[in-house]
Design a protein around this nucleic acid. Sequence first.
DNA 1: GGGTGATGCTGAG
DNA 2: TCAGCCTCACCCC
Length: 266
Amino acid sequence: MPEGHTIHRHARLQRKHLRNAGPIAVSSPQGRFAAGAARLDGSRVTAVQASGKHLFYRWDQGDTLHVHLGLFGKYKTFLGDPPPPTDGTRLAMRTEDATIYLAGPTVCEIIDPDEEAGIRKRLGPDPLDRRADPERFIANLGRRRIPIGAALLDQKVIAGIGNVYRAELLFILGIDPQTPANQLDSSTAMALWDRTVTELRRGEKSGRIVTTDPADFGARRDRDLDRSERLYAYKRDGLPCRRCGTEIRMTEMANRLMWWCPSCQT
DNA sequence: GGGTGATGCTGAG
DNA sequence: TCAGCCTCACCCC
């Protein structure tokens, strides 16, 4: 379930359990991270940081653990006695009161400072980072001729947007996904950044992606919405646009499926 | 119980 | 451009 909001949420929630807990029991039930787990076992976590879709854990013996969930990766956290790990559990971290299981990540590795610098260098500004500079995002767009629908998935342009938010943000701002990135005027680009910040923060808080207005469905909170009510465009091909009634269309862009309203997004 | 799709990304060609 | 990787939740019998 991982776009940037999920990763930042994991960082925030796991920080509570891991940071300044006692020594952490680290293992790799599945075995594929056995050497790394052995190296971390019994150490303490001093920080958990999210950057785009990457997670970095600082350990007091100097190591940094790097995790990227990819498409399939999932965390599960249990308070008290955890159930036995599944066959796919790559990493288990256990403190006195919580156990965190990680399964299916694309990346779970111990890295050195140079490697971390390399990863960070490849990332554009992160809308969930309060120190992020929107001007960098605008400058990045200005340098690309690719469609904005492709640029938003490029983590070097902006870090943390995934396939759902790409479709939703372009719909909300009424931007045709085919528009070349360098042809967005700077006020539109700034509005796109601002809305991205708003929506990702909203997702980080609630733990789910909701871009519609609950009030439109007679609901009070994001969590009260049915699955079919949460989004404007994503996976709604063939259904009427919530704003104008035109059929939502589906196409492929940057190797991923993309949904948009041909009448609202021009 | 089996089949399938998924909110990601890389590296080979 | 495209195959490949990683795991599990969900859907349909």
